[in-house]
């Protein structure tokens, strides 16, 4: 087959010949680019086996079983990509429960604050107690006497 391909190559007009040569070079460039990407993954793999997203919110789903919507409060600006990514991670980890970032009028409110004082202040304001928290700034709270 390769013999046939070489014969075929010689029989081609100049233009397809040039295109074939150019694309063989581009494939070589692609492989070089891939080598770089694989090196990055290898470096990551030295630290973690697999990409790990939403770990801040892992395990919280156990405490909100039966709920359909929970509130979300943050002291960060959600219009910035970095912060809205955290909200997306929370939503992904807690699905099929909806995480509402526009309201705290729910039995459970997930707080994700840079400054813990802001979370405490909000908890007092809405009369909520912590159910579960971690040192990543995440506190799942439950509102007292919520109906």
């Amino acid at each position: 087959m390769f013999e046939k391909m070489i014969k075929n190559f010689c029989a081609q007009n100049l233009f397809p010949k040039i295109i074939i040569i150019v694309f063989i070079l581009l494939i070589a460039l692609n492989i070089y680019g891939l080598y770089g990407a694989l090196k990055v993954v290898r470096q990551y793999k030295k630290i973690v086996d697999q990409q790990n997203i939403g770990f801040r919110f892992a395990g919280l789903d156990e405490f909100i079983k039966g709920e359909r919507i929970i509130g979300f409060y943050t002291d960060m600006n959600l219009s910035q990509d970095r912060n809205s990514k955290d909200l997306a991670h929370a939503q992904y980890m807690l699905a099929p429960v909806i995480v509402d970032d526009t309201s705290v009028e729910y039995r459970y409110v997930l707080m994700f604050c840079k400054n813990p004082q802001n979370a405490l202040k909000k908890m007092k304001e809405i009369n909520a107690v912590p159910v579960r928290g971690n040192n990543q700034g995440v506190v799942l709270t439950e509102r007292v006497n919520y109906r």
Binding site: V41, Y44, K45, Q50, Q51, N52, I53, G54, K85, A88, H89, Y92
Partner: peptide, 10 residues
């Protein structure tokens, strides 16, 4: 490695 995929995946 990227088992969760990209932004629009999750």
């Amino acid at each position: 490695f990227y088992a969760h995929g990209g932004w629009d995946a999750w």
